[in-house]
């Protein structure tokens, strides 16, 4: 996965709260192998409601309501967004698991305070505009507006570097092995009894 620090793309507003992962991608599409692409499933059952991603096919940034991505742990929700070309979602809050999944796939979950959310929503309205996101400085630039977002440091490091966790963790192989050995020595009860 390629890392990124700064991106300018078309932003649209998705004026809803609690957009759960079942809405982002209905469960019935989740048997599909990722290699086939998940873009067509994005907001599949909400299409006739004039969703902005349908109106603006080139959109790359979604400005959404509170608690975006709540619900299931399905990473397929992130795949659908990423495969449809979305690079970042800006919202006052995210489902915790969704936010983690997003970062693992190069999608920025940019958390903003309510005031910033209102400013962005009124600046964009039902239209679209180019918006720039800068991860290191946690800045959002839209026309003359300069706003800030929140992102925990571990998430920022990962997005910028595009690191693969499994490779990173290999550096700790010895520590993991010695943890395992000491757990086995001191807490044998942890290992399931052959039942």
């Amino acid at each position: 996965m390629a890392g990124w620090s700064n991106h300018t793309g078309t932003a649209v507003v998705l004026p809803r709260e609690n957009v759960d992962t079942d809405q982002i991608i209905p469960a019935r599409f989740m048997a599909t192998p990722r290699s086939e692409g998940y873009g067509p499933f994005l907001f599949h059952d909400l299409r006739d409601e004039g969703f902005p991603t349908m109106r603006v096919p080139g959109a790359e940034v979604l400005v959404a309501g509170r608690n975006f991505g709540c619900g299931s742990s399905r990473e397929a929700a992130v795949y659908a967004l990423v495969d449809a070309g979305i690079r970042a979602v800006i919202a006052p809050s995210f489902g915790d698991i969704f936010a983690g999944n997003a970062v693992n796939n190069g999608l920025l979950p940019a958390r903003v305070d309510d005031c910033t959310a209102v400013t962005l929503v009124s600046a964009l309205g039902t239209g679209q505009a180019d918006l720039t996101l800068d991860i290191p400085s946690r800045r959002i630039m839209l026309g003359d507006l300069e706003l800030s977002f929140e992102l925990p440091d571990p998430a920022a490091t990962k997005l910028i570097n595009g690191w693969d966790d499994i490779d990173l963790t290999r550096a700790h192989a010895e520590q993991i092995e010695s943890y395992r050995a000491s757990r086995e020595a001191t807490a044998q009860w942890v290992w399931p009894r052959a039942g």
């Binding site: 742990s73 990473e75 999944n101 693992n104 966790d165 499994i166 700790h172």
Partner: peptide
């Protein structure tokens, strides 16, 4: 956890 983390746990048990 999500799928990327599931793969990570499978590969490293962490």
């Amino acid at each position: 956890i999500g799928a990327t983390q599931v793969a990570h746990v499978l590969a490293t048990q962490t």
